[in-house]
Design a protein around this nucleic acid. Structure first.
Length: 425
RNA sequence: GGUGAGGUGUCCGAGCGGUUGAAGGAGCACGCCUGGAAAGCGUGUAUACGGCAACGUAUCGAGGGUUCGAAUCCCUCCCUCACCGCCA
């Protein structure tokens, strides 16, 4: 959520910055509501003051043994005026709140202009795609060839966009997650966390998935509704919601390996083949909670941590800075990391790293005590995949394939594979 | 699932119908003291909104109600803790 004060004071500035995100802020409507709010709030507070003054007088009169019936009568007229004012004020505040909760974060000044992924800007490239002496297969062909990847069975159990993995492939998938978790905890200073996979609406509001993106989520109805997490970003970032963390403890770095569930509404026909786009996938997520002045540097650092996984796996990738139109709701700046997939002869997203600045922190009231002022101030939060496990596995399959369809196990994964160094050999 | 006890400021904890934004303590900040530190002493220490300011208003888990007046009484819900039952 944006700072209501900023929106109020500089609506035109905010609106112009939001244009980069292709968001139209209704300044006129906002101004109109705002001036009404002000008027009614003043009236309400005047009436409240009157009530407080009179009831104090009432108490004193009664104590002094005076007749209070006149006072009592005068109060009843005041009361209904006050009640009306309070109801109206509440309605306006709720409307303002609901408008504000649908406004996306302001992009940083250095975010590129543009409307979709074609306008993203490549920042750097790492590694060189291998030139195969044969026609490389895609992961679907490779997986099915060995009977280790089975979409058909998954569809009878669940439906489209699910997969069953078996044997060495299932183990490779687990190995990747373990390897990522170990690297981030041991080398990058993250604290391992285990978090709920079902969360409430409030947590999703905090990170910005609600109220705007409910259709992307799986809802679990019940006496109390739950939602399956679309990313560990939701439960992990909410670790600091409603807290005032000690400045000494910043930055906080958390890592979690969780399944993620996405309805993929509106992506019919996209990536229908293979494991690229699933309703359920595993991800190792990095979250940082930092002091405001640190967040720009922290985004570079966090992105580097995600890149490190690909470097250790010797997988070629590139990093792109997302343009305003391609960025998510909560992000002020985002880098996507795209891994080379020989089967598609293209780079595909494998990680998305974002600085949300104080946008999520404000929604979830996550604060720290600013040593300079001694006052609570909003923290900045960042998140990034480090990495999407399924897509990383796809990249390993396709980049490490041999002509006969067997797959070499990357050096760094060997300790996790229980002696297997070739899959489907 | 049953029974009982609770949810108050950064934290702990008092208050149980009026002047309590809230005693006391801890923590933190500043000052004194010290060669330096600890201890000691003093002062300060919530947030939001409106206002240039003085100040005003709201907030004691959430929402409703009673009352001239609610942190305090009543109702509903949420959460936490304890014991019993059941269970991976």
């Amino acid at each position: 959520m944006l700072d209501a004060k900023l929106v109020r004071a500089e609506p035109d500035l905010v609106a112009s910055k939001l244009e980069k995100k292709r968001f139209k802020l209704d300044v006129e409507r906002l101004n109109q509501l705002e001036s009404r709010r002000k008027e009614i709030q003043v009236r309400t507070e005047d009436l409240q003051k009157e009530r407080n003054v009179r009831s104090r007088a009432f108490g004193e009169a009664k104590k002094a043994g005076q007749d209070v019936s006149a006072l009592q009568e005068a109060m009843s007229a005041l009361k209904s005026d006050l009640e009306n004012a309070e109801v109206e004020l509440k309605a306006i505040q709720e409307e303002l709140q609901s408008i504000l909760s649908l406004v996306p974060n302001i992009p940083d000044d250095d975010v590129p202009e543009g409307k979709d992924e074609n306008d993203n800007v490549e920042v750097r490239k790492w590694g060189v795609p291998e030139s195969f002496t044969f026609e490389p297969k895609d992961h679907v062909a490779l997986g099915e060839m060995h009977g280790l990847l089975d979409f058909e069975t998954a569809s009878t159990i669940s439906g489209a966009r699910f997969a069953v993995m078996r044997g060495a492939l299932a183990r490779l998938h687990r190995a990747l997650a373990q390897f990522m978790l170990d690297t981030h905890t041991t080398n990058h200073g993250y604290e391992e966390t285990y978090v709920p996979y079902l969360v409430n609406a409030n947590a999703l509001f905090g990170t910005g998935q609600l109220p705007k993106f409910e259709e992307d989520l799986f809802k679990v109805p019940g006496e109390r509704d739950y939602y399956l997490i679309p990313t560990a970003e939701v439960p992990v970032t909410n670790l600091v919601s409603d807290k005032i963390v000690d400045a000494k403890n910043l930055p906080l770095r958390f890592v979690a390996h969780t399944p993620c569930f996405r309805s993929e509404a509106g992506s019919y026909g996209r990536d229908v083949r293979g494991m690229i786009r699933q309703h359920q996938f595993d991800k190792v997520e990095l979250v940082q909670v930092v002091a405001p002045e640190q967040s720009s540097a922290a985004l570079e650092e966090l992105t580097g941590h995600a890149e490190r996984i690909l470097q250790l796996l010797q997988l070629p990738y590139r990093v792109v800075a997302l343009c305003g139109g391609d960025m998510g709701f909560s992000a002020a700046k985002t880098y996507d990391i795209e891994v080379w997939l020989p089967g598609q002869q293209t780079y595909r997203e494998i990680s998305s790293c974002s600085n949300t600045r104080d946008f999520q922190a404000r929604r979830m009231q996550a604060r720290y005590r600013d040593p300079a002022t001694g006052k609570p101030a909003l923290v900045h939060t960042l998140n990034g995949s480090g990495l999407a496990v399924g897509r990383t596995m796809i990249a390993v399959l396709e980049n490490y394939q041999n002509e006969d369809g067997s797959i070499r196990v990357p050096e760094v994964l060997k300790p996790y594979m229980g002696g297997v160094d070739v899959i489907g050999g």
